[in-house]
């Protein structure tokens, strides 16, 4: 089956989108100077606090998640054989895919 070529398949569109995204980041940093802030905490008065926190939090989440996988990651078959049903081998093998 031939797949249709979409907007996202053209590299120049991806380049435009990425460029637009960087522009948006810049505009947002500048916009901070033009809005009236009403912070609840001292750290919110820091310039670009939300931008920095969003960036750091996302990096933190992803690296912590990598660490979590390293500690708690197991093969998909990990729990096979843990069910009494499997141990006794009563039920015949079934597909475990979708209905």
């Amino acid at each position: 089956m031939k797949k249709p070529i979409t907007f996202f398949d053209r590299p120049e569109n991806i380049r435009r989108l990425t460029f637009g995204f960087f522009i948006a980041l810049g505009v947002l940093l500048l916009a901070e100077w033009f809005v009236v802030a009403h912070p609840h905490f001292r750290w919110e008065e820091m310039p670009f606090f939300s931008a920095t926190y969003g960036f750091v939090a996302c990096v933190g989440v992803i690296f912590t998640a990598k660490g979590l996988r390293w500690v708690l990651g197991r093969p998909e078959s990990y729990y096979q054989g843990d069910d009494v049903e499997n141990m006794k081998r009563i039920a015949p093998q079934e597909k475990s895919g979708p209905d």
Partner: peptide, 11 residues
Amino acid sequence: LQLLLFAIFAF
């Protein structure tokens, strides 16, 4: 928007 877009930027 800063929080979200800079998180996307990190991603």
